[in-house]
Design a protein around this nucleic acid. Structure first.
Length: 786
DNA sequence: ATCTGCAACTTTTTT
DNA sequence: AGTTGCAGAT
């Protein structure tokens, strides 16, 4: 019992309240840096230790795979440490190394492995591998347990194909991207194509509804699911099959959800079904040995574009709060003590978020010292902004012994902003790690090899088949493929079946028949290898990957090409083999299919490892849940943060403010904010106004050059040539003198060195970085900078 | 069947 | 500015 007290004594009173709560619903409103991960991990540990809950009956939903890994790791340490104390009277670190390892692996086997910890997507994928064959959709379509998971690229391709080839519509009028977004948002509202169509009176909506319907057919035909379906299918399955739901309801007695403010309706439905066994939550009161524990912070809701709805969090108490005995009706705990940041940083964050209307009242209470002022940098342009950040990081690493490269993060609103910073880091010799942008699994060569694997696992995956049937070149052209595809469609069989039938291939293909038959035989052999391997024992995925990369001729083609690019791609193929190898090491008895799932569902942040000691470059979205001693928030400009797409809409604007808040609260010790006066976008330079959010921060906590916070005005666009006059107000009547600073559409910032003539004939000489130009201010795309 | 060059478009944010 | 898609040539 004493150990138990020790175990919980590391928590503050509110954390402890959250952790010790046993059955029933509980909402934990947890501010940034308030130790919510600690509350989550200790709660899991407490359920197992104190209440003797079986680990396999616990479901914990995290926002990223990385968070899942960390949570498991921390629980493992907690238990190992506790056992070390109880059994040997020593702390874990004090034990001999082999004892530590032994202890930890025992904890892993008995406690960590049976836990269900992961993202909504990965957990649902796991559930579906068991039960998807019991599901059929509203049109009777079915899936098999070896389904493929489509990435965004695959989805766009399918949608474009439907628009152009099946519906004979113009893919410019119906942009695949926006059609995709419409379908995705319909799915996240739980609408079938028919529901969607009913809601769409106009032609455009009808077309999209039809694309949606065709799209669902394509998913079924490929035995594939997209990200949305991964969650929607279990929800539908649970609704239609009582015994399946009953099984999982019984399985998951204690559910924990992190980042609950970013949950969407479908995800909420999933939770509700699991908790109440499809009873109305209003009447549900069978909370014996059952709980739902959600942690979130409305101020950090930043995923509404993905249909997340923080009102779900606001409604939590009403949803699950009824039917409880009196002492259990306390359904909310607030964690407001912040252990992460200095008082200064918290003041800045609190005062900013205070401006939002839609929120639960909450402040972050500091527990650390005052700290240093927030530094505001006023950069001339985006290049100088990069120089400032890189230079500053170098200086600080040199001067402060406690800071290393890994102590720094550079956060921006859009991925496109990263390039300038990468270049600056290279110039200043600063090691960095870029998160997001083009992911490893998005690279062409990686996707090609993955397509081979997907086809081996799931022969119905025509999307993958089409990707690789002629990659590397085998002399199988578009016409041949089209002919076989048409035949497949008419016979209502997957393309794979056609190419496996030698007679059909010979009839349809002519000269290309031979390479097709060879390709089909090769793939069939691999499929067999895989099947045998699962029946006997050792299945070595990495061998299959290496084998297929070689046998397909993929590696040979790259070697023959021999260009730098080809060698780069070769290295990535090798890296993929390593990735499979690593996956096998980390997950014993995992299958190739498990690897493919994980590859499809792995975000770039998931691979972010501490201890790499590099500066981290990433978007504000990716930074959620992370912390760094020193944070640079860059591009604090109107149009960027807040982003211009969200200006005009009050709710979206508040989300931008929350994004800003998330960025600020990542910082532990020091925070730098910067904005550029001139920024280059689409090859054009334009003036940029400082973000209105900068004006909302308390001045007494800021230092550096304060920006001239003009009221937000429309950005002025400069063009490369042509008639820019109409877009540059007042440049005719402006008086010019030597020393004036100007901004030019092509050359950027400059300074007037001479003024020639006067009145209509006046011209000026301007010195830009590198070039001197004589310009007529009446016609040239120049504007004076105040 | 494959290669080449020009035109058009891009930039929110992601599991 | 840099990438992708398409038309036309080989």
């Amino acid at each position: 019992m004493t150990q138990n007290t020790d175990f919980l004594s590391q928590l503050n009173p509110s954390q402890r309240q959250a952790v010790e709560h046993f059955c029933g619903p509980l909402l934990v409103v947890a501010g940034a840096g308030s130790g919510k991960t600690r509350a989550l991990t200790y709660r899991v540990a407490n359920l197992i230790r104190t209440h003797r809950v079986d680990p396999e009956n616990i479901l914990a939903v995290t926002f990223t795979n990385k968070a899942a890994r960390e949570m498991k790791d921390r629980i493992e340490k907690l238990f190992a440490g506790q056992i070390a104390l109880e059994k040997y009277g020593k702390s874990l670190d004090a034990l001999a190394e082999d004892m530590q390892t032994k202890l930890r692996s025992r904890v892993y086997k008995t406690i960590i492995k049976p836990l269900w910890v992961g993202t909504f997507h990965s957990l649902c994928a796991r559930i579906l591998r068991y039960d998807i064959e019991k599901y059929q959709d509203e049109r009777g379509r079915r899936w098999k347990s070896n389904f493929s998971i489509l990435d965004e690229d695959d989805v766009q391709k399918i949608i474009k194909d439907i628009i152009v080839n099946q519906m004979n519509e113009d893919s410019k009028k119906f942009e695949p991207r926006s059609v995709r977004a419409a379908i995705s948002s319909a799915k996240n509202k739980g609408w079938t194509p028919r529901d969607f169509e009913r809601d769409q009176p106009n032609f455009r909506g009808k077309v999209i509804a039809e694309v949606y319907s065709h799209y669902q057919n394509a998913l079924a035909a490929n035995n594939a699911l997209d990200f949305d379906e991964l969650i929607r299918v279990p929800v539908e399955l649970f609704k239609q099959n009582e015994s399946v739901l009953g099984y999982w309801h019984q399985q998951f007695c204690h559910i924990l959800v992190d980042e609950y403010q970013d949950t969407n309706r479908v995800q909420y439905d999933l939770l509700r079904l699991l908790v109440t066994n499809n009873e109305s939550p209003k009447t549900f009161n069978n909370w014996q040995n059952r709980s739902i524990f959600v942690v979130g912070d409305v101020d950090q809701a930043i995923y509404s574009f993905r249909m997340a709805d923080f009102k779900i969090l606001l409604d939590f108490q009403q949803d699950f709060g009824d039917g409880l005995p009196d002492e259990d009706t306390r359904t909310m705990v607030k964690l407001e003590e912040n252990y992460r940041s200095t008082e200064t940083i918290l003041e800045v964050a609190n005062q900013l978020i205070y401006k939002n209307k839609q929120r639960i009242e909450k402040i972050l209470r500091p527990t650390r010292g005052e700290g240093e002022l927030v530094y505001l940098h006023h950069a001339e342009d985006e290049v100088e902004e990069g120089e400032f950040v890189a230079g500053q990081i170098r200086d600080m690493v040199r001067e402060c012994a406690e800071l290393q490269w890994g102590s720094f993060a550079v956060l921006y609103r859009t991925n496109a902003q990263s390039r300038v910073f990468e270049e600056a880091m290279v110039r200043w010799n600063v090691p960095y790690k870029l998160v997001g942008g083009l992911k490893f699994y998005d690279r062409k060569e990686v996707k090609d090899i993955v397509a081979y694997l997907r086809l081996i696992v799931n022969p119905f995956d025509t999307i993958s088949l089409l990707r690789i049937i002629n990659t590397p070149r085998r002399g199988i052209g578009d016409t041949t493929v089209d002919r076989m595809l048409t035949a497949a469609k008419q016979l209502n069989v997957p393309l794979w079946e056609i190419i496996c039938d030698e007679d059909s291939v010979k009839t349809l293909a002519g000269r290309a028949a031979k390479p097709i038959i060879e390709f089909a035989k090769m793939m069939a052999r691999w499929q067999e290898t895989l099947q045998q391997a699962t029946e006997e024992n050792p299945i070595i995925g990495s061998e299959i990957v290496a084998g297929i990369a070689e046998e397909s001729g993929y590696i040979q083609e790259l070697k023959t090409k021999g260009t730098d690019e080809a060698l780069d791609r070769l290295a990535n193929v090798q890296e993929l083999v390593n990735a499979v190898l690593q996956f096998e090491e980390e997950n014993a008895d995992a299958t190739l299919q498990d690897f493919l799932s994980s590859a499809a569902l792995t975000a770039d942040v998931d691979n972010l490892e501490e201890g790499q000691n590099r500066v981290t470059l990433m978007t504000l979205h990716s930074a959620k849940g992370l912390e760094f001693p020193v944070v640079f928030m860059v591009g604090m400009e109107q149009g960027l943060l807040p982003h211009f797409r969200s200006m005009g809409d009050a709710a979206a604007f508040e989300e931008e403010r929350r994004l800003c808040y998330v960025g600020i609260t990542r910082a532990q010790d020091r925070l730098f904010l910067s904005h550029a006066l001139v920024r280059r976008t689409w090859g054009n330079r334009q003036l940029a106004d400082p973000s209105v959010f900068l004006g909302e921060l308390p001045k007494e906590f800021l230092t550096g050059i304060l920006p001239n916070l003009r009221a937000a005005k429309k950005p002025v666009f400069f063009q490369k040539s042509g008639n820019p006059n109409s877009q540059i107000p007042n440049s005719k009547s402006v008086e010019w003198k030597v020393g004036d600073r100007v901004i030019h559409g092509t050359f950027g910032l400059g300074e007037v060195t001479h003024v020639f003539g006067s009145g209509n004939k006046m011209s000026v000489a301007v010195k830009f970085a590198g070039v001197q130009k004589i310009l007529d201010p009446k016609t040239a795309p120049v504007q004076k900078v105040e």
